[in-house]
Nucleic acid binder design. Sequence first.
DNA 1: TGCGTTTCTCAGGAAAATCACAGATTTCCG
DNA 2: CGGAAATCTGTGATTTTCCTGAGAAACGCA
Lengths: 250, 250
Amino acid sequence: MVFTMTTTSPQGRTELLRPDGSPVRVLVVDDELSITELLSMALRYEGWQIRSAGDGQGAVQTAREFRPDAVVLDMMLPDMDGLAVLGRLRRDLPDVPVLFLTAKDAVEDRIAGLTAGGDDYVTKPFSLEEVVARLRGLIRRSGAADRRSDSVLVVGDLTLDEDSHEVSRAGEGIHLTATEFELLRFLMRNPRRVLSKAQILDRVWSYDFGGQANVVELYISYLRRKIDAGREPMIHTRRGAGYLIKPAAS
Amino acid sequence: MVFTMTTTSPQGRTELLRPDGSPVRVLVVDDELSITELLSMALRYEGWQIRSAGDGQGAVQTAREFRPDAVVLDMMLPDMDGLAVLGRLRRDLPDVPVLFLTAKDAVEDRIAGLTAGGDDYVTKPFSLEEVVARLRGLIRRSGAADRRSDSVLVVGDLTLDEDSHEVSRAGEGIHLTATEFELLRFLMRNPRRVLSKAQILDRVWSYDFGGQANVVELYISYLRRKIDAGREPMIHTRRGAGYLIKPAAS
DNA sequence: TGCGTTTCTCAGGAAAATCACAGATTTCCG
DNA sequence: CGGAAATCTGTGATTTTCCTGAGAAACGCA
């Protein structure tokens, strides 16, 4: 199936659509309600259609009739092993890409071989930006074989490549740390739109982050040094509201 | 049949296509479900169309109607000998190339005779990179005999010949061990793209590897000594994300 | 069998990234 | 202009991630 990119979202964001123009469908499987709720909300915000399940049984059943374009699957389910669920899912939907959720320390053993099939995983606790980015990648790549990968975000003379993790402004390469990269990606995916510190914290930092809220200020400061240094600034503060990024020209 | 190479895959990777533009078809035959699953997933990711069978009977039957462009065949099947299956397959598809899967300790001379006919084999446990590479080779050669050049990967002044296993940078030959070669091949097949340690491990090491994840770091270190030694580095670390290779120029 | 090569584990150390804290600076508003 | 609130940023502690030397074990080959 070929997914297309359009910029017709009400937010003015780029979003993925199925060939018939209907929204992408994602199935979320996790036994913790708080996680499925969190993910459902974040993914709906992407304009996707979400269905969720709390166990393997439900997952297989829902998948059969919902026919999702991608699945987010917790490896630790009450009724069956993540791999068993995967097997059943694959029987009905042979090509559906799967994003696994796994505990930080359980990573190495059972994930073996899974990323080789084009699937991917994130460790708990994750950040929503990470999940969304990985899902977008999976969905994009699962599409028919003949489309250019549109993995580059552009705002003014600033570009960010999600595949190579390369960032450059006015042609000049810029090195960013992992957190800086995710923050900039979030900003660039929402250009000209004010994002509150709370929103940023919720999206870019993992859901169990317990630190001081001013990390956002700190990382905005880091980004400015690297992105805006000496140039016309692109990152702006809206005092009392948040931050936004926009092309330097306007 | 002549297969053509295009670079239009969503990953920006080179991929094989049949003359009519339809995907290459591969039949996977193994009695262990986990193996057929693993291979199916990995080969689908190459953009190929996969069908699998769990025994000789099913293999012959599936082959008859699926008409694959290549077959991956475990020599150890429950119902019939690998040779018998081969014979039957050849009756319907005289020219289809076969990649044999064999146990490490299996008698090699039996295989040796078979591979003389343009077939090939890998021993279990295998790495996916190896299987994919061999299959690509078989399919390519079964098509037209005269597109040797396609077996050379080039990134900047670094070249790697998948047929002769020769590697050179700036014209200077470099000796690599088997593992180093496979790692470099994987990197070079995905230039300018960040590959996580998990992806690399899943692809380059055999599916039953149970060791420490830092072998990847170790072999990256080895490669750097040989590839980047003294020169402008081509292998880059994206801390917290993975590694990527790109031409020294940019 | 014996020797050189290759693969891999282990562990120390270096480097980088993350973040808390607090003082400096800016903005807003009366 | 003055003060309060909000934001910015320098410093350094802590944690995470990565690199690589040394050596053990497995392998390949004569």
